[in-house]
């Protein structure tokens, strides 16, 4: 494979090449594999093996439907959407049989949630541990958890989240605001119960 051929191409340019050259898709997979794997685990808490299976199926979906990709959209948002949909669909099926939520404690995203601040309120007290954040995230409803992870752990903009979740940007902003309030409440309750 001529790596230089793909090196200087943007994701969107590579995506447009895929129909004629499948190797371009391998390059895209290499670019996105680590962060999408982390994303699957963050929103679902799946084991590494399960997450890899989901990722493989998602990339297969993306490859089959590459002609659907709209070049005016960011490839990143498009692939996140496919991965998100497949993860959520699998998560809903497996939810009951799942045990603990297994995000890595070393996940840097947890630290970002911990340090996320609003103009008026602090999202979570700095004294909360990464473990507590994981638990709170796990307890939050699916949509609240997803928007918090996308906004703070994946560091996506409102527009990108809007493209990933297929919702208007204004609605996404509302979801994030509500999720933050719920997170704050859960964090406060956890602090109280810990103190007791």
């Amino acid at each position: 494979m001529n790596a230089d051929l793909y090196q200087n191409k943007t994701d969107e340019e590579l995506a447009q090449m895929v129909l004629a050259d499948a190797q371009a898709f391998v390059q895209l997979i290499r670019r996105y594999e680590p962060r999408l794997l982390a994303y699957i685990r963050r929103i679902s808490g799946f084991s590494l093996e399960d997450a890899e299976d989901i990722l493989q199926e998602s990339f297969m979906d993306a490859y089959k439907n590459i002609a659907v990709f709209n070049p005016t959209l960011k490839f990143s948002s498009w692939i996140y959407r496919i991965v998100h949909n497949r993860t959520i669909s699998t998560y809903r099926k497996k939810k009951k049989e799942m045990g603990d939520f297994s995000i890595d404690d070393e996940d840097e995203g947890l630290a970002r949630i911990l340090s996320a601040k609003d103009d008026a309120t602090k999202l979570a007290d700095q004294s909360l541990t990464a473990e507590a954040v994981k638990k709170i995230l796990h307890e939050l409803p699916e949509r609240d958890r997803t928007v918090l992870i996308l906004a703070y752990m994946e560091e996506k903009t409102y527009d990108e989240i809007s493209d990933i979740l297929r919702a208007p940007a204004g609605t996404v902003a509302t979801w994030i605001r509500r999720a933050k309030i719920k997170f704050q409440k859960s964090a406060d309750n956890r602090k109280i119960s810990t103190n007791i």
Binding site: Q23, I29, E33, E52, Q56
Partner: peptide
């Protein structure tokens, strides 16, 4: 092997 390698 990584997903990329499997695709390749």
């Amino acid at each position: 092997t990584s997903v990329a390698d499997q695709f390749e």
